[in-house]
Simulated assay, not measured.
Amino acid sequence: MEINFHGKRALVTGASQGIGRELVKKLVLCGAKVIAVARNQQLLESLQKEVPSIEIIAADLSNWKNTEEVLSKIGNVDLLVNNAGLAILGPLTEVTEEDVDKVFAINIKSMINVTKQVIKNLLARKAPGSIVNISSQASVAGLANHSVYCASKGAVDAFTRSIALDYGRHGIRVNNVNPTVIMTDMGRLGWSDPKVAAPMLDRIPLGRFGEVDEVVNSVIFLLSDMSSMTTGSNVYVDGGYIAV
């Protein structure tokens, strides 16, 4: 069955690179009108050169009021992917207040704000919608030196369950995709050293890290009517990591 988003408008945050960038391309291939949001104007412009039909918005989503102003001008949104994310890693004994504020501002606070604006729009139109939040295996499994990141992704999962409950009766579905390490450009830089990768790979039954399209495909499924009875759920793209 072919997934078709014709007539739908999709908003993707963190859209300038990695998973978000490929997701924008896939949504357009499926017929959606896409609004790509990220901080980096140059990367957004390069994406628009690849996919001229998209709208691009450079915005700092950690700024609550500015985000409200930006989203108030974009019109209707039917599909939302909260992909923007930040990781600051290190032992808890070296964590600063600024680290915590930065990670939570992007990973959960901005997600709450963006989702709020989209749901208000859907309710005003009495329209159904589908929202996918990019969480992580770190939401349910402890990872070394990831304390703040794990805490932020645990909050993402809790937020998803809560709003799935609140808005399911309005035809609004909300789900998570929870990846393991994914081989984006950043992922390859961080996990290319076999000594670094080996302990993580030893915990993954499939014996490898994930590829970007494996996350994108799961997101597209959850956005689509093919998952019409799925809400408040986590889809783990982790090679079985949490099963160990």
Rank of each mutant, 00 (worst) to 15 (best):
L23W: 01
K73E: 14
K49N: 12
L189N: 05
S233N: 12
S192H: 07
P194E: 10
S53P: 07
Y241N: 04
D185I: 06
N63A: 10
G210A: 08
N121H: 04
V118P: 00
I163L: 11
D60W: 12
M226G: 11
N175Q: 11
D99C: 07
F221W: 13
I74S: 05
V118T: 02
G75F: 09
F104D: 10
V237E: 02
V219K: 01
V51H: 08
M186D: 05
S233Q: 13
V28R: 01
V28F: 09
Q137L: 12
C150W: 00
G171H: 05
S135A: 15
N113Q: 14
I56Y: 01
L80M: 06
V28W: 03
R9D: 08
W64Y: 14
E69S: 10
F221H: 08
S228V: 05
A144H: 07
A138M: 02
L71F: 13
K25H: 11
K8C: 06
I54N: 03
R125H: 14
R21S: 09
A164N: 08
Q41V: 15
D193E: 11
Q48D: 06
M1P: 13
L89Y: 07
T13R: 05
V219Q: 04
M186Y: 05
A144I: 14
N145E: 14
T13H: 09
L80P: 00
I204A: 06
T96W: 09
V148H: 00
P52C: 11
V77R: 01
T67G: 09
D101C: 08
G210T: 03
N176P: 02
N133Q: 13
V37A: 05
A59Y: 04
Y149T: 04
A15Y: 03
E214Y: 04
L29G: 12
R125I: 09
G187R: 03
A32L: 08
N82S: 13
Q17K: 05
R9V: 13
G31K: 06
L11H: 02
E50K: 10
G142Y: 08
I54S: 05
N145H: 12
E22H: 15
I3E: 00
K195S: 11
N234S: 15
R39S: 07
I106Y: 08
A198V: 01
V132H: 02
S218H: 04
A164D: 02
A243E: 07
T180M: 06
N217L: 06
A87L: 04
D78I: 03
N40F: 08
Y236I: 11
K26T: 15
P91W: 07
S130E: 08
L43Y: 04
N63C: 11
R203C: 12
V140C: 07
L122A: 03
V95H: 04
D78P: 07
E214K: 03
K8T: 09
V177D: 03
V177L: 06
R169H: 12
L123Y: 02
L206I: 13
K26M: 14
G207K: 13
S72E: 09
Q41A: 14
R208H: 15
V24E: 05
G171Y: 04
A144M: 10
I131P: 00
D60P: 08
G207D: 12
S72R: 09
L123P: 00
V95K: 09
S62P: 01
